[in-house]
Design a protein around this nucleic acid. Structure first.
Length: 573
RNA sequence: UGGGCGGUAGACUAAUGGUAGGUCAAGUGCCUUUGGAGCACUUCGUCCAGGUUCGAAUCCUGGCCGCCCAGCCA
């Protein structure tokens, strides 16, 4: 079946229960009425290999493969490669990788280009039946004859050519006798149809372009509408799911199938995924890549599957998210927080913890013996005792987060400040005594004392402390580059721009902050690309693909929820 | 303005003529060696107007609002 066992986490709880939605209802009904007899349900995921897959495709993939899985059916991966000018092998490779990463395996690998011969034969059949004709009009002339949304189109003067003449011309088109754009093959339907797709749609255009799979065999290529339904039909696809903008194409999808008398696949349209603060348009994502607004298709800020994978997102979280949003026919916009929720839910459960100080502030513990060091025992994951324990070195000089000390604490600030006591996680209670400042008046060091009796983090006298902060022993710390990623856009709807503006105006100038020299606990020295770790109190991170043992690089996947930041924000506003 | 498709809390989504429910977000409290996590509680909704019905989010009529369509792209 389609779920790839390599990508399912055996220890993970069952994925979210399948909520009902209208597509599931159709499957249930078709199963009940045995609409397709004893044949198993067949679906397909039909990307055009002209870009990288993104979260919108993840929704489609989960629906195509997920529905088939749930009903004992099969799913094909089919590349919709009818336009040689935009399609490349690089994209087909990335698409296969992404589908598998998401956790799915196709039954058959197909290409629309596999059907070029059959499609050509069917075109001849339609010509012979008087249902298709060669039009000598230019693209411009065809457009002029198409009419408008409110006015019918006009018949082309070439519409009534004889079958013989159409056949001759079409064959010569295929032989390469005519230059690009000089003729097309059109279906003869109805130029007065209120549905513009039915106004004698183009079936074939002349394109002297090399195709990534068929090479130079063809110089005419079928249009999407002429290829898609028949491809579905050839693969015996029972449920052909696509997005809402194709609803107007359904009459044409059915027209070709009916005229040809072939297996009747049914098209079902659902709403495209729209996410706040996120752009899910291949064209615009391509622009970001080409204009180098991001480092590439796999920039961790990109909503591409390769981007969020590099960012540290997990396939299971994306699947759970897709299950939660379901499918409908309403166009709305899902809060990005929903996606982040499912990601945090999984990472909280599965990520080992470590201590890392992103913006170091030196702390000297004055009453801790000079030269002394010790190992403290720390849980790898408090959510998962089976993750075990590790030893973390402690010594007289440590780093804490700059944010965890305030010389003048604001109200409700529980962390370190002069005279206040806090707990160093898994280590000791310390009390701030005095600060050391540089010439500019910045605090560069905090002098503290510790309570030797509080080892492990509890005082025998039962004394409570308001806050626990993380730390790293200065002597043992390792350095790493940490990349803090934030939303790529500042506007919930990146496409929402004033007249004459561009979505680029909504780019978040602070979407990436690089910390060159973060201080990490030494256990992180062996972290490998792809490893996911929670830096305690800071967020979920993963080791970047560029990371090397001597030059570690961590990406922030998501910050932890930050209640203090919320309090501060409210106090500030 | 022709055609197609839709409107359920701030967001997404159930309820298929019979108690408007779930998730996210927001808020309050509890708990806590991550201001994390967890737990409990709370706020907030059927686009409008008529009609059918014992009963309407659901069916009917009429409005209003939103999205899609005039590529030899998919």
């Amino acid at each position: 079946m389609s779920t790839n066992p390599q990508n399912t986490n055996a220890s993970a709880p069952a994925e979210a229960a399948r909520p009902s939605h209208f597509i599931r209802d159709i499957f249930v009904e078709d199963q009940k009425t045995k609409k397709y007899g004893d044949a198993v349900f067949q679906t397909r995921f039909p990307p055009e290999p002209n870009g990288y897959l993104h979260l919108g495709h993840a929704k489609a993939i989960c629906l195509d493969f997920g529905m088939a899985d749930d009903f004992g059916g099969l799913t094909n991966l089919r590349f919709d490669d009818t336009n040689p000018e935009k399609e490349e092998q690089e994209y087909v490779d990335s698409i296969m990788e992404d589908v598998r990463w998401l956790g799915f395996e196709w039954d058959r690998l197909c290409y629309a280009s596999d059907y070029f011969d059959q499609l050509f034969e069917w075109a001849i059949q339609l010509i012979k039946a008087g249902k298709a004709y060669v039009d000598d009009h230019s693209a411009e002339e065809i457009r002029q004859h198409r009419g408008t949304l409110t006015e019918p189109g006009e018949n082309s003067p070439y519409r009534n050519r004889t079958v013989e003449e159409n056949l001759d011309l079409f064959l010569r088109m295929a032989k390469g006798e005519f230059p690009d754009g000089t003729r097309v093959l059109r279906a003869k339907i109805d130029m007065a149809s209120p549905n513009l797709n039915m106004r004698d749609p183009v079936m074939y255009r002349i394109l002297h372009a090399s195709h990534h799979r068929t090479g130079d065999k063809w110089c005419i290529y079928p249009m999407y509408d002429y290829a898609h339904g028949q491809s579905d039909s050839l693969e015996k696809v029972t449920h052909s799911m696509c997005t809402l903008e194709f609803a107007d194409h359904q009459p044409l999808y059915r027209w070709y199938i009916e005229q040809l008398g072939i297996f009747p696949s049914q098209q079902i349209e659902f709403d495209r995924l729209s996410l706040t603060y996120t752009l899910l348009s291949k064209r615009k994502l391509l622009q970001l890549v080409q204009e180098k607004r991001v480092s590439g298709w796999d920039d961790p800020r990109m909503p591409t599957l390769s981007g969020i994978r590099r960012r540290g997102f997990t396939a299971a979280a994306i699947r759970n998210f897709c299950a939660a949003i379901g499918a409908s026919r309403t166009n709305g916009s899902t809060d990005i927080e929903m996606l982040e929720h499912f990601q945090r839910e999984e990472l909280n459960r599965t990520s080992p913890r470590a201590m890392a100080v992103l913006r170091p502030l030196k702390v000297v513990i004055e009453n801790y013996p000079e030269g002394q060091e010790e190992l403290v025992e720390v849980a790898n994951n408090p959510e998962d005792p089976s993750a075990g324990l590790r030893q973390v070195p402690f010594s007289r000089e440590i780093y804490i987060e700059q944010d965890d000390f305030r010389e003048v604490p604001p109200p409700k600030y529980y962390r370190l400040s002069p005279g206040k006591e806090v707990r160093l996680r898994n280590a000791y209670f310390i009390t701030a005594k005095e600060v050391v400042k540089d010439a500019a008046g910045n605090v560069v060091e905090v002098r503290c004392t510790y309570d030797p009796a509080s080892r492990g983090g509890n005082s025998p006298d039962g004394r409570k402390v308001k806050s626990t902060i993380h730390w790293v022993s200065a002597k043992h710390a390792i350095s790493a580059e940490v990349r803090l990623y934030d939303k790529l856009f500042i506007n919930p709807n990146p496409s929402d721009v004033p007249e004459g503006g561009s979505f680029l105006d909504n780019l978040n100038p602070n979407s990436l902050e690089v910390i060159a020299d973060a201080k990490l606990e030494p256990s992180l020295a062996t972290a490998k690309p792809g490893d996911r770790i929670q830096f305690e109190r800071m967020g979920y991170f993963c080791v970047d693909i560029e990371s090397k043992p001597e030059a570690l690089v961590f990406n922030r996947t998501l910050p932890l929820k930050d209640t203090w930041a919320k309090i501060e924000r409210k106090a500030g506003s």
